[in-house]
Amino acid sequence: MFKSLRGYFSNDVSIDLGTANTLIYVRDKGIVLNEPSVVAIRDEPSRGGKTIVAVGAEAKSMLGRTPGHITAVRPMKDGVIADFTYTEAMLQYFIKKVHGNRFLPASPRVLVCVPYGSTQVERRAIKESAEGAGARAVYLIDEPMAAAVGAGLPVHEPRGSMVLDIGGGTSEVAVISLNGIVYAASARIGGDRFDEAIVNYVRRNYGILIGEATAERIKMEIGSAYPGQQVREISVKGRNLSEGVPRSFTLNSNEILEALQEPLQGIVGAVKQALEQTPPELGADVADRGIVLTGGGALLKDIDKLLMEETGLPVLIAEDPLTCVARGGGRILELSQEHPGSFGLQ
């Protein structure tokens, strides 16, 4: 109620509703929120059922460490909503946090970046979730387009630009020209699959079970996509499956490289597929300019080198790749006000 009135007291925001992290960009302020997409729920039937205990970084610290009546869940999976209720609650919390405590609850215009491969049902769920969180108007934009604009690619030119956004749940590759997507593909491979691959590798080769948080730490510290001259090591702890007791062991970067081969080949395959499907003129432009990497996956060591070797094209990593999508969304929101219809917001 009174959303339009409350809108005068709200800032328009761009949300990168990611599987791993949610980022919010506010006009003239930049990235104001970067928190994990995790919600902790307490289930106590005697006290009115399920209640939300924590959201974001606080909830992430509870992942895998909760007692029976508390569950830490990630409401987003593969780039789309897995749990509508908790996504809405999480968005509500983030929007409120961005606007602070005010007399009138915030009701901003919200642009949400969605994976290119998401279905209409998934898009509608995201839209309704944002509306339920208090947004007075919700626009959706494809993540590759937002990533390209956020990375600073000249997408408005009649020349091809290729962007590869490796997120937590999906990897999106797109060829963009004249503010439109010429070709795009979305593979449901991302940072989560890397973590999963590491967990499986350790269980298979060491007979030790490690948690997702440990796997993520291994990936960030010694993970690599291409063999390097230097071999790095890390000492981690997990539960020995045969003995049932915690054990410490050491992993090196070559082992992690081996563990990550499967998801990495999936991403390389998607890029090669995109290059095959790109019209020749635009393909030539891409060969001249190179492929720009964005998203948290771009921070994996030597992933640019891997793609360079596999495709034979120059590969660049955008500056601050983690925030490209959110920043691009914010820029698109501004441009759409100045030039309505330029990006075809839904």
């Binding site: 604009v149 600073g152 690619l153 000249p154 997408v155 408005h156 030119e157 009649p158 004249l178 503010n179 820029r331 441009l335 030039h339 219809g341 330029s342």
Partner: peptide, 9 residues
């Protein structure tokens, strides 16, 4: 830096 002004401007 790209201005992203569409051609339809």
């Amino acid at each position: 830096a790209p201005t992203h002004v569409p051609l339809t401007s």
